[in-house]
Structures are given as structure tokens and as C-alpha cells.
Amino acid sequence: MALTSRVADWQRLGTVERVGGHDIFVRERPGDAGLPPLLLLHGYPSSSYDWRDAFDLIAGHRLLTFDFLGFGLSDKPRDQQYSLRIQADIAEELARRFAGEPIVMVAHDMGSSVATELLARDLDGTLSFAPKSALLFNASMVREQASLLLGQKLQLSRIGPLFARLTTESAFRHSFASIYSPAHPLTPAEAEDQWSLLKHNGGHRMLDKLIYYNQERVTPPTSARWHNALRAWPGQLELAWAELDPICTESVLQAVLALRPDTPVTRLPGLGHYPQVEDPKRAYEIIQRHASNH
């Protein structure tokens, strides 16, 4: 299956850059002097295409987003262990182009877990860029409290490789639609776009590899490292939480707040797992406010 015309248009607006020995798809926009740049980190199993409306709805700020290794239009090596640390390495290398300027990190789903590794590096004193603040959307940051989909559980099981090889477009559409809200359902066009990005270079056949990071999040010492980053990072951290997310539920939110009780939370009633796709105007108003305040 070729890329849809919409995804092909998105591809033409970006570039492919050599990062950490791999070809990584990057989309960037310049911004106004004096405003902090935004680094947008996407989730699993999608890509930076999730953030496409940022380029129309975010005013003034320089924007940088990219496809994680194994996702979207980036390289998809079959022999790679898809650790959050590898993805954080790529994010860190790309962020160096901001030349020390403090960065606002905006992340969703897996991207929010990558962000916690970056915060942990900042705590360690090893991060090569300066995070000004972080706004994290729904993510299983305390994975023990998450309600994984059946397909995700199968991907993480012994039959994960077989399950991934047998993944079909209809099965993907059914599963993907289940995490959208009733008031903002997955559209046929969005489903077609997301499947074309997943299938690009055979990504749909390696879902069991791409979800490896879920194992890391419940395995010491990495799990403790990332929980401590949420607890102890001294910067400005906010949460934006879609209340109808069937995976990253209220239980996950409360577990994050138990680690960091005073964290500001903007609740998004009526939205599911992909708030920036389901209701872009609402999601980007929150992002714009956060970036302007910090």
C-alpha cells in the first residue's frame, strides 16, 4: 500500500536526516525570536503526523517534530531493540540544533515516556539541551495502572512476533477505532492515513518490536528511574488528560499524581486517546497556553 495523498503531502514538507546512524523523518518550522521552541514527541504506533495541525494552530513558536526510529517515515530496522533510551538519544541529538535555547517539550503516549527519560537525564546532569518545561498528554507513565488493549497484550506475549506478522488493515482499524471517543470517532481518512504510515517499509510486521518499551516501563531499574524523574524533576511539568482514554485511564493519572501531587492537570472530558487528532483546536489551545506561560 502506497502512502495516501495526505501523508505524501506531509512527507514533502519534511526532510530525512541522518541521526544516530539512521534515516529519521523530521518536520520543522521557524519561529519568532524570544519565544521558546517546541519539541513535539508522538506516540505508539503512530508518528509525527499526529502533530500535523500544530503547524497551523500554534502561533509564533519554532516547531520541531520527527518520527521515532521504527515509526512513520523513519527507518525501520528489523534487528533493533526499540528502547525508550534509543528514541531519547534521537530526540536529544535533534534538539541540539536549538543551540542551548530552553525548549518546551510536548509529548503524547510513548512520547511522554521518552520525555521522562529526557527529564531523568536532566536530573543526572547529562542532558545536552535545556528543557524549559514539559506538557505531557495521556501516557502509561505508570504502566502497572494502564489498561492495555488485547492486541497490545498479545504483542507483548510469546506469540507477539506471530501476531505482528498476521496484522491486517481491518484488525488495525478495529483496534485503533476503539481508543477514540464516541463523539470524535476515527474517520475513514484518518484510518487510511495511519495504516499507510504504519505499513510503510513493513512497520506493521514488527509491532511486537516497537512495543518493547512497555517491558522497560515495568522492569527495574528503568521503571524506578522514570518514576523518579516524574517525582523529582525540578522544572515546570503539566499534564493534559483526555478522560475517555481506555488505555491511559484515571488510574494512571492518579498514579502519576501520587508521584508528583502538585502537578497542574488540564482535563479533557469527552476525548479519547488521541486528543490532538480528535479535537485539534482544543488540544492546541492548551499547548499554546502552556508554551506562552513558561
Rank of each mutant, 00 (worst) to 15 (best):
A224V: 08
R225G: 06
R225E: 06
R225H: 05
R225D: 05
R225W: 04
R225F: 09
H227C: 00
H227Q: 08
N228Y: 15
N228F: 10
L230A: 04
R231D: 01
A232D: 15
W233V: 08
P234W: 12
P234I: 07
G235T: 08
G235H: 08
G235I: 08
Q236E: 15
Q236Y: 13
Q236D: 15
L237Y: 05
L237M: 12
E238M: 12
E238D: 14
E238A: 14
L239M: 13
L239W: 06
L239H: 07
L239Q: 09
W241G: 08
W241Q: 12
W241M: 07
A242H: 00
A242G: 01
L244A: 13
L244C: 12
L244K: 11
D245W: 01
D245S: 05
P246K: 06
P246E: 10
P246H: 08
I247A: 02
I247Q: 03
C248V: 12
T249R: 13
T249P: 08
E250H: 11
E250Q: 09
S251A: 15
S251N: 14
L253F: 02
L253Y: 02
L253M: 03
A255I: 11
A255L: 11
V256C: 14
V256P: 02
L257H: 03
L257K: 12
A258M: 12
L259G: 02
R260K: 02
R260Q: 00
P261M: 02
P261W: 02
P261D: 01
D262W: 08
D262I: 12
T263F: 04
T263K: 03
T263W: 04
T263R: 01
T263Q: 00
P264W: 10
P264C: 11
P264D: 09
P264I: 10
T266L: 04
T266R: 12
R267Y: 02
R267E: 04
P269N: 07
P269T: 02
P269A: 06
P269G: 05
L271P: 05
L271H: 13
L271Q: 12
G272H: 11
G272I: 10
G272D: 10
H273E: 11
Y274P: 02
Y274K: 03
P275V: 09
Q276T: 06
Q276E: 11
Q276A: 09
V277Y: 00
V277C: 01
V277R: 00
V277I: 07
